[in-house]
Write a protein that binds this DNA or RNA. Structure first.
Lengths: 343, 343
DNA sequence: ATGAAAGCGCTAACAC
DNA sequence: GTGTTAGCGCTTTCAT
């Protein structure tokens, strides 16, 4: 049988659709008596509002989109995990899309968004886009995650990559290491996060009065295990291998660690390793890897907050720049002592 | 300014809304000449169809929901990664929700779905539900993932857990191990996947004419690293520790591995380990862990296919049971030889 | 506090 | 092949 509509309820309860709507949406102005009548009718008919109709009438979908490059990258999975409950609490559904870092797909999403897609706003973590690809006048509320700096029309949430990388590198130097490599650099214009991290790496060297051996800065197309492994192999093939490595993501560090151990090196004795992102894998690797831990919950909740604020604002809001916190987490891959029994 | 509507386009092109709709939706029956007029008008006005209105008129949202217990569990992240492109290819958006394995939330989703939620069907991976919690008469197209067997009204996609577990255990026994532990058992009624794996574990013992030492079957509330680590600790505290462990997920195996190494054991010499799921982490751990590899791509694409078939069918389809393939992947955690240099 | 009625923007049955 | 028009089911302005 046809599903009951609001109209059916109104008929049965002997009131107008208007009143039923008021009851359903919890508007104060309903007599206790009418409310009861209506609620009875609702129960009797098993009525539930049709979201699609409501969306059209409201002109909003009650959905936000979260777009990341890769879902199976733990960092993004963990981020998403934090975004979803926050959105749901506020009554929003979350649409998820992944771009594989494909610039075409990313640009496409940005352009086609608006009425063409059923979401009221978007949290976007771009990878293959240059700064100028981001819209000057986004047709929809937009919060950008990651490295980019806000261009003033959308919000941006991220940590201070330069400072964090400087800290990580300084930690390695502070251990007495003098040949510190960096794995993960990426070229302009798309690899901004990577470039910021390289900048921090250089600063730390400058702070310590140490020169940077440019041949120790290794570029990788992506921040994954395979690339980390490949880069580490090349570093270890050299006559003068590094005694420490700053990896631009934990995944890179995990790949690098795998290779180092496979070659019979001791970590951290022969070579110290530090990663970036603080994903769970890094806590359970052998040895566990030191890392830069961004405050993911803050990033996620801030992003949702900002986005909903934009969605619910009548006039365009200026784009703001939000810095979430981060901290250095020292684990065994940069510690001198022997592995403690943790469990 | 107000966004252009289909009506505006019709006015400008001097045709009826009907014709514009035909053009937009690519219906054949349009003269080349009118099509051009219409397309011109569309371009001029920058018209894009309003999805919300279209949804209401069509009575469908063009969205499917994918519900998993945890997004940051690599197995589910990898699955999702495979589902999304498949759905997108067919013109569907993917709504994602996670339940944290909370039975209330899971039941709720099942009950409130239908018109109350804007999706046309659901791919659902339950965790905290017993068989009888699944609807006898789902109000919407439903495909269930994981351990459960179809009750005849919805489809079910999964691998043969008993066979896979039997293979994994047999592999360990084939190595000459005689004290094979199992980590991950869970009680009735919710832990069906776990129970099937335990059954496979027993079968393998029976096949080999070996008795099962019940004290070597360790239950865990979840399939994560922490639980794996905890269980392994208890096993190693015993006077008669096992010489091999079948872990019900790779995450459990990774946690177990961590503890074993931290205690100075050699893997696989002192204790062999095998996991389940074939997540990427397991390929890069030190040593890499052997595992049961389910055909995730097949699971994902089959699930999407079945679901869309249900969505587009007028009459209710009988629930079918689909078995995806799996295979044993032998890596270093169950191999005798020394670690090869992989990169 | 409640009713009447006009949309929201699209689709599609029904004409011609 | 194209126009006319009546919904889809809800929200909400305007009355009362």
């Amino acid at each position: 049988m046809r599903d009951a509509t609001l109209r059916d309820v109104a008929l049965l309860a002997g009131v107008s659709p208007r009143t039923v709507s008021n009851v359903v949406n919890g508007y104060a102005k309903v007599t206790e008596r009418t409310r009861q009548k209506v609620e009875l009718a609702i129960a009797e008919l098993g009525y539930r509002p049709n979201v699609l109709a409501r969306n059209l009438a409201n002109g909003r979908s009650g959905q936000i989109a979260v777009v990341v490059p890769y879902l199976d990258t733990p960092y993004f999975a963990e981020l998403l995990q934090a975004v979803i409950p926050g959105a749901r609490e506020r009554g929003y559904n979350v649409l998820v899309d992944q771009t594989d870092g494909d610039p075409r797909h990313e640009r496409d999403l940005l352009r086609r968004s608006g009425r063409a897609f059923p979401f009221d706003g978007m949290i976007f973590s771009p990878l293959g886009l240059a700064q100028e690809d981001l819209p000057d006048d986004p047709s929809l509320p937009l919060v950008v995650l990651g490295e980019r700096v806000s261009n003033g029309v959308f919000d941006h949430v991220g940590i201070d990559d330069v400072a964090a990388s400087r800290t990580a590198t300084a930690h390695l130097i502070g251990l007495g290491r003098r040949r510190v490599a960096a794995i993960g650099d990426q070229p302009y214009p798309t690899g901004e996060a990577a470039q910021l991290r390289t900048r921090g790496y250089r600063r730390a060297h400058a702070d310590a009065g140490l020169p940077v051996d440019e041949s120790l800065v290794i570029g990788t197309p992506r921040f994954n295990r395979a690339d980390g492994a490949g880069a580490m192999s090349r570093l270890l093939d050299r006559d003068d291998p590094p005694d420490a490595v700053f990896c631009y993501s934990d995944l890179v560090a995990l790949g690098a660690l795998h290779v180092a151990l496979a070659r019979g090196l001791r970590v951290p004795e022969d070579i110290a390793l530090i990663g970036y992102d603080d994903i769970e894998d890094g806590r359970y690797s052998n040895p566990p890897i030191s890392t830069i831990s961004p405050d993911k919950v803050a990033i996620a909740t801030t992003a949702v907050d900002r986005l909903l604020e934009r969605i619910n604002s009548d006039r365009p809001l200026p784009g703001v720049e939000v810095r979430a916190g981060h901290r250095l987490v020292v684990r065994h891959s940069t510690a001198g002592r022997a592995a403690p029994v943790t469990n």
